[in-house]
Design a protein around this nucleic acid. Structure first.
Length: 240
DNA sequence: ACCCAGGTGGCCC
DNA sequence: GGGCCACATGGG
C-alpha cells in the first residue's frame, strides 16, 4: 500500500480531529512548567497540578523559583513523579530567574540551536521537553517528536528508526518542501504534533495495531508494524 | 487487576 | 552507545 506524504497525512488528521489549539496554557512560563509536568503523564493529571499552582499564584518563573519545595511537592502531586518534578521545575525556574532575570523574551531571542542545547543541559529536560518548550513557549520552528510519533510512523509502515533527532529530521525535511516561511512552519509543527497526539490517544495505543476506526486506515497497511511494538518497562516497587 | 500516560536520568556493561 | 530501571498519580 502507498505511504502518503507527510503533508497529506497532516491534512487528513486536521480534517478528522480539527484544530487542537495547543499549547493548552496561556503564558510561556505556564508552557515550560507544563512541559515538564506532563512527562510520561496524562494531561488530565497535569491540569490538576497546574490548577493547584495557579491557585497559589505560583505559575510564574519567579513564583516557582522562590517557592518552598515542600509546597511544590504538595501542589504538583497529582501529576505524578512529584518529588522529581517539583525539584525540576524549581531548578529550571531558578536558572531562568538567575541567568535571564525571568525574562523569557530574552531567553528565546537567540539562535535556536543554542537555546536547545541550553535547555538540554538542564536536569529533567530531554529532547522532547526541550523542543516542546522551543515550539510552544518560544514559537520557534522545531518539530516535536514523541512516543506516539514513532509508533504512528511504524504502524503506517514508514521505515524509521527510534532515534529522536533522526525522526525529527525526517519530518522537518519532508515538510520543508512544502513550507518555507518560519511563522507558517511554526504553525504547521504546532498543529501537527498535537494532531499526532490526538491520533495516538484515540487510535494508536501501545500493544495494539492501528484501530480500524483510525482515520488513516485507508492510507496505511493496517496492522503493519505490530511486530515493532515493544512494551515499555513499567515495573518498579510501589509499596503502598 | 492490569495497562497506560504528550519522558528523563542514572546506572551497568 | 544501548539496555534496563526508578520515578508516581489517576483513569480506563
Amino acid at each position: 500500500m502507498r505511504i502518503p506524504n507527510l503533508l497529506e497525512l497532516y491534512h487528513k488528521l486536521l480534517n478528522h480531529f480539527g484544530s487542537q489549539h495547543w499549547w493548552p496554557g496561556d503564558s510561556p512560563s505556564e508552557v515550560i512548567i507544563g512541559a515538564i509536568l506532563t512527562q510520561q503523564t496524562a494531561w488530565k493529571n497535569v491540569e490538576k497540578a497546574i490548577l493547584n499552582l495557579k491557585k497559589e499564584k505560583l505559575l510564574t518563573v519567579e513564583g516557582i523559583a522562590n517557592a518552598d519545595i515542600a509546597l511544590l511537592q504538595k501542589l504538583v502531586r497529582p501529576a505524578g513523579y512529584y518529588n522529581q518534578k517539583s525539584k525540576r521545575i524549581k531548578n529550571v525556574c531558578k536558572y531562568l530567574l538567575k541567568k535571564y532575570d525571568a525574562n523569557l523574551d530574552t531567553f528565546f531571542d537567540r539562535d535556536i540551536k543554542a537555546i536547545r542545547n541550553e535547555l538540554l543541559d538542564m536536569n529533567g529536560i530531554g529532547p522532547e521537553t526541550a523542543d516542546s518548550i522551543l515550539l510552544y513557549a518560544g514559537n520557534l520552528p522545531i518539530f516535536v517528536v514523541d512516543a506516539y510519533t514513532i509508533r504512528v510512523c511504524k504502524r503506517l509502515g514508514i521505515k524509521i528508526g527510534d532515534d529522536y533527532e533522526e525522526v525529527q529530521r525526517f519530518f522537518e525535511k519532508n515538510l520543508s518542501k512544502n513550507e518555507k516561511s518560519i511563522s507558517k512552519k511554526v504553525k504547521l509543527y504546532n498543529e501537527y504534533h498535537a494532531l499526532i497526539v490526538a491520533l495516538g490517544k484515540n487510535y494508536c495505543k501501545n500493544k495494539k495495531p492501528l484501530c480500524e476506526m483510525c482515520p488513516l486506515v485507508d492510507v496505511c497497511d493496517y496492522g503493519r508494524g505490530i511486530k515493532h511494538m515493544k512494551k515499555r518497562p513499567q515495573k518498579y516497587s510501589n509499596n503502598n
